[in-house]
């Protein structure tokens, strides 16, 4: 990894923000996995991605705690085009207030239909990453605006209700 500064992105590119058309491929990847491997295969993909590809981030979070989590998400959304996100660091948790999700915004703007489970990916992936870092993760909302919470175990967040994550409808 090119960069291991706590709270920053563990990878670097030569351009300041990503290319939004790649969001199409993320949605298509989910559709392909759901079609070929079913819902359980998709959950396995997200869990493996969370603990595999994102392992350097999880390590940053485990070592740096909530300031590293907040720093990561600030850097993350600064590099994603078109979003509007407020990252709040509280004593026992970090809250991501996603007012405009860059991914859903771009898909909708280009007539792409997200898979109905699309917004659940943030919960399943986030839970795998948080778990590896000794944290818990919860999500509510979806389909364009939502709130993510990454918390210390001491915060004793109530169990995730998947019904609080909106399905993505055509």
């Amino acid at each position: 990894m090119a960069n291991s500064i706590p709270g920053s992105l563990p990878y670097t590119d030569t351009k300041p923000v990503g290319s939004a058309d790649f969001y199409f491929a993320i949605n298509s990847t989910f559709r392909f996995i759901l079609h070929r491997l079913g819902h359980s295969g998709w959950l396995r993909y997200l869990a493996d991605l969370g603990t595999g590809y994102y392992a350097p981030v999880n390590t940053q979070w485990r070592q740096g705690g909530l300031p590293a989590v907040a720093g990561y998400w600030r850097a993350f959304f600064a590099a994603e085009p078109g979003g509007e996100v407020d990252v709040q660091e509280l004593p026992d948790r970090v809250e991501l207030h996603v007012k405009v999700c860059p991914l859903i915004k771009h898909l909708r703007a280009h007539g792409r239909v997200p898979v109905k489970e699309f917004c659940q990916h943030c919960y399943h992936l986030g839970t795998a990453r948080a778990g590896a870092a000794g944290l818990t993760m919860r999500l509510c909302g979806g389909d364009g605006s939502c709130m993510h919470t990454y918390a210390l175990p001491a915060a004793k967040l109530p169990a995730q209700d998947l019904k609080k994550i909106k399905e993505n409808l055509p």
């Binding site: 992105l9 990503g18 290319s19 993320i26 993350f76």
Partner: peptide, 9 residues
């Protein structure tokens, strides 16, 4: 969320 900045990764 999965991002586009590190999409190739």
């Amino acid at each position: 969320m999965i991002g586009c900045y590190d999409f190739c990764g």
